[in-house]
């Protein structure tokens, strides 16, 4: 649309109004939770950015969010919906754990790399069947990827209860991965590991892939006008399939990094809904990799901040999810007025 990039006074005003709306509704929700909004915001900010431990922890929690969001974004570039990030992430986590507690190549770095590759492959496999059904049978990928989440959850629950259950543990969980697989925390006392750099690295790769690579270019054209893409000789179905596979791999990698960098095993309720938070982030970032990092930081800060809020007040930490979703709805509402309607 002409003039989308021009900054007009009206757009600026609307954007300010948008921020104001979001902040006031946030304040209202905190107030409902039983705390004065100003104090609430203070606890959230202090809890997420207050000192460098909390800041690092906020950064660390961005890792699964960034990758889960990217898992939605990459298929969206070609016009596909990947709602299955949650299941793909679980499969990926299990893949990493499986390698981590059963194999050892002797060299730490090799171990880690192999485990991560396996986690990406597991995630990819879980995205493959909905994508295949979509391009072969036009089966709605929203339903299939979503059903995949529930199936994966039960599948993992079975695996950690039965064949791969840690025999020494009273709970249903896998054994710990071997220490040579662990990606250690970098600083004493704070949860921050190199996984953060892996996630940021992946985002940069995706950014460059989209802007600089022939295939990334094909993704973009396919999403923008599939008929044109087809007439230009781009194989639209293959491109869509590939985007979905990459999406699945990214979600799987998120799971792998969580296991190697934080939990060191897969247990019951491994993911508190990373896949869906990733979806929200991607919606807010309009599928842009760099924006994903920014929004993921905000969401992560909200999550770590909310834990702090719960610590000092009666407001439960679950508030973060509400604040995040409210923000998405407001942005969606204002988008029509700020960017203008665009069909398709």
């Amino acid at each position: 649309m002409i003039g989308t990039r021009t900054l007009s006074f009206r757009k600026l005003l609307l954007s300010l109004l948008l921020v104001l709306c979001i902040l006031s509704v946030w304040a209202l929700i905190i107030w409902f939770g039983g705390e004065s909004p100003f104090k609430g915001f203070r606890y959230i900010i202090e809890g997420s950015l207050g000192n460098h431990y909390q800041f690092l922890s906020t950064l660390n929690k961005m890792v699964p969010l960034i990758l889960a969001a990217a898992a939605v974004a990459v298929p969206a570039w070609t016009g596909m919906w990947n709602i299955g990030g949650e299941g793909q992430l679980l499969l990926g986590a299990f893949g990493a754990a499986l390698v981590g507690f059963s194999i050892d190549f002797g060299v730490g770095l090799v171990n880690i790399v192999v485990a991560l590759i396996v986690s990406a492959a597991f995630g990819m496999a879980w995205a493959a069947w909905p994508a295949f059904f979509k391009i072969k049978l036009r089966m709605d990928e929203v339903v299939t990827t979503l059903m995949g989440n529930y199936i994966a959850a039960q599948l993992i629950a079975y695996l950690i209860n039965n064949p791969f259950r840690d025999p020494r543990s009273p709970l249903a969980q896998t054994p710990y991965i071997k220490s040579s697989f662990v990606i250690p925390y970098l600083f004493e006392g704070s949860q921050f590991s190199a996984t953060f750099f892996v996630a940021i690295g992946m985002v940069l790769v995706l950014f460059i892939f989209r802007k600089r690579f022939i295939t990334g270019y094909e993704f973009d054209i396919t999403g923008s006008n599939p008929v044109f893409a087809g007439l230009s000789g781009i194989r639209v179905k293959k491109t869509k399939l590939l985007s979905m596979l990459i999406g699945g791999a990214l979600a799987g990698l998120a799971g792998g990094l969580l296991v190697l960098g934080m939990t060191q095993r897969v247990m019951q309720s491994f993911s508190p809904g990373y896949g869906f938070t990733g979806l929200l982030i991607c919606l807010l970032a309009f599928n842009d990799p760099l924006l994903i990092v920014g929004i993921a930081f905000l969401f992560s800060a909200l999550q770590t901040g909310s834990v702090n809020l719960q610590l000092f007040t009666s407001v439960p930490a679950e508030i973060s999810g509400v604040l995040q979703a409210v923000m998405v709805l407001f942005v969606a509402a204002f988008k029509t007025f700020i960017v203008g309607r665009r069909e398709g």
Binding site: L279, L283, G321, V322, A333
Partner: peptide, 26 residues
């Protein structure tokens, strides 16, 4: 507002998932 029905639908689903949890705690 002509927003994408999938995007809004999922945003609402996630909102309600966390809102019900939040309200239950409160």
């Amino acid at each position: 507002l002509k927003a994408n029905n999938f995007a809004i639908g999922f945003a609402i689903n996630i909102l309600i998932s966390s809102l019900t949890l939040f309200l239950m705690r409160v």
